[in-house]
């Protein structure tokens, strides 16, 4: 039932080529634990049979589902707190001032998983930035995994998920309880558009962004992919826009066109003026 060396190699290569996600040797246990449920789902009796199917012509839909199964989607509302504090205290007030003529903000969540990140910001915008009423706030949230996108669009969360990082006042204000789950109200759900987007393939044409949230996804990529994604983020950002990275991520030694902002543990960057010239 377990994973042979050559089968691991094949899975590793397919996942890397498709998604940029690096599965280092030693991650066999992880791959196995993700392949087992996929076998059940595909009605395939064993992991070797599943890998065999990956080699057959017409395997593309299976490859998509394999990559979906290999993604790590851990997230939470207001994850790490400080990035959201930086948004609330510094970034949003600065952008609201800078965009007061056009009254438009574009925000992109580039690996949005099950939606907690975009919805955290949406609740905050609704609760704390009444001055944005009447503005056009475009929020685009993307991910490679169709499964998480579907969950994000549904806006339905378990008790454990709403327990994690969601302020109780937001729970009361923006959710309704449905059975054992909690459903986000439509006015917040409608603030975010969710779409499939693979960061390591060619990007579709995106509007110029004021904020790019690129958090906790580059950790899965190799250096080349990190560089390409960072330079892509720089090109979609407006000259005075902001980039947010995850707590374990940095552009250092990858892309020297970003300046770190002094907000503690926020992972917040702006584009260096020299890069713009």
């Amino acid at each position: 039932m377990s994973l042979s060396g050559s089968d691991f190699e094949l899975v590793r290569r397919v996942v890397y080529d498709t998604s940029g996600i690096v599965l280092d040797p030693g991650k066999e246990y992880l791959v196995e634990s993700r392949l087992q449920p996929l076998c059940r789902h595909e009605n395939v009796p064993s992991i070797p049979r599943l890998v065999q199917k990956l080699r057959e012509p017409g395997a593309q839909p299976l490859v998509t589902r394999l990559v979906d199964a290999m993604t790590t989607n851990e997230t939470s509302f207001f994850r790490d707190v400080e990035p959201f504090e930086a948004l609330r205290r510094h970034v949003l007030p600065a952008l609201i001032e800078a965009r007061r003529a056009t009254r438009q903000l574009n925000i992109w969540y580039a690996a949005s998983s099950t939606g907690q990140e975009p919805y955290s910001v949406s609740m905050m915008l609704d609760a704390e930035f009444p001055q944005l009423r009447g503005w056009i706030v475009n929020q685009l949230a993307t991910d490679i995994s169709p499964t998480v996108l579907e969950r994000a669009r549904a806006g339905r969360y378990s008790q454990l998920e709403v327990n994690r990082g969601l302020p109780a006042k937001y729970l009361v204000h923006y959710f309704t309880k449905v059975g054992n789950d909690w459903r986000l109200k439509d006015n917040i759900r409608k603030m975010v558009r969710f779409e499939e987007l693979n960061l390591i393939k060619a990007w579709p044409l995106l509007p110029a962004m004021d904020i790019v949230m690129l958090r906790n996804v580059m950790i899965y990529f190799d250096t080349e992919a990190k560089k390409r994604v960072l330079s892509g983020a720089r090109r979609v950002l407006r000259p005075d826009g902001y980039l947010f990275l995850g707590g374990a991520e940095t552009p250092m030694n990858l892309d020297d066109s970003f300046d770190r902002q002094p907000y503690p543990r926020a992972g917040c960057y702006t584009v260096k003026a020299t890069t713009l010239a």
Binding site: L160, N163, R164, G165, P167
Partner: peptide
């Protein structure tokens, strides 16, 4: 039920 992460996150809030 809760976990240590849940308590820590709420305290951080």
């Amino acid at each position: 039920p809760f976990s240590k992460e849940i308590i820590a996150d709420k305290l951080a809030l």
